[in-house]
Computed example of a mutant assay.
Amino acid sequence: MIGQDMMRVCDLISSRRQVGVRTIVAIAGPPASGKSTLADNVVQSLNAHQSSAVPLATLVPMDGYHLDNRVLETRSLLDKKGTPETFDGVGFCKAIRGLQSTRHESFHPKFDRQMDLAIAGAIAVHPETPTIVVEGNYLLMDSDPWRTLADVYAATVFVSPTLEELKSRLQRRWIKHGFDPKSALQRATTNDLPNAELVIRESRKADLTLNQNYTEFRMRYAF
């Protein structure tokens, strides 16, 4: 299924490629939906047959714009990490809009899950790279600041398994990070799952929606 989904996303990007400006693509979805893996695979596929040292596509994840844990602590938000208010949403949207310009190289932060912090300047975007894939939970949220990028995205993708599947994946994620099954389930149900429900409920319709059991391919306008 991952391979088929990747091919569908690549086909969508090809059909929406912009002429004379960067093609910026959004891959959104709730936590543990598989959007990060999908986005990474899409970028790897787009770069697989490049003939120069300049990447044809670069991945810029929203997670790099997490607020630092020390900031979250001062705002009593550390236990809510991952919710919209725990990101520099305005800074993220400004940076993504800035990627429309190809006049100079730009640098973006990357989130290190093991260290639980963002690393500044870890992602370089070459000025000649024509396609940017942006990945994150809130990219299609119909609220500010996220919706200010609606006119920036040439194509949008939404990945959303069922809530039961998300619950299972989120619990396994926390177990992987050292929590016992009971504590992992509590972390999943008290913070991550409500975030997932928010993303599913408040996100705008995407051009391509990928679900657990089926794939719906809906284009906003003709190729």
Rank of each mutant, 00 (worst) to 15 (best):
R172N: 11
I24F: 00
L56H: 07
N137W: 11
C93N: 01
R8W: 07
A48K: 07
A155Y: 07
I123S: 06
V133T: 09
L185P: 05
L163K: 08
E202P: 08
V125M: 04
L67H: 10
D63G: 13
N69K: 06
P194R: 10
K35I: 00
I123Q: 07
D112V: 12
E202T: 13
D180N: 15
M6Y: 00
V9N: 05
A120Q: 14
V25P: 02
G20E: 09
L67P: 01
L67E: 04
A32D: 04
H177I: 07
Q212M: 05
P145T: 11
T102G: 15
D5K: 03
P161A: 13
D40K: 15
C10N: 01
S76G: 08
L163D: 13
K167L: 10
A124G: 11
V133W: 08
T189H: 03
I2Q: 06
L198M: 15
I175F: 10
P181V: 02
F87P: 03
A188E: 02
E85R: 09
E197L: 09
V134F: 03
Y221V: 10
A206G: 09
L77F: 00
P194Y: 04
Q44I: 00
R113E: 00
I132C: 04
E128H: 14
R201W: 01
Q44A: 10
G98T: 07
I27F: 02
S14D: 07
S52G: 04
H104L: 09
N69D: 01
I175D: 06
T189S: 14
F111A: 10
Q212V: 01
D112I: 11
L139G: 11
G82L: 00
T209K: 10
S101I: 05
A32K: 04
F87T: 03
C10V: 15
Y65A: 04
F92V: 01
E85D: 11
R70A: 08
S36H: 03
L46M: 05
D151Y: 10
P127G: 12
A32Y: 03
V125G: 02
I123R: 11
V90W: 00
H177P: 08
P130C: 06
I200Y: 08
K182N: 15
F223W: 11
R220L: 08
F217I: 13
T83F: 00
H126S: 13
L193T: 11
P31Y: 01
R147S: 15
K94Q: 10
T190P: 04
A118N: 05
S14H: 14
K167F: 04
F87I: 03
D79C: 01
P31K: 02
R147F: 09
S143C: 13
S106Y: 02
D5Q: 12
D5I: 00
T215F: 07
V54D: 05
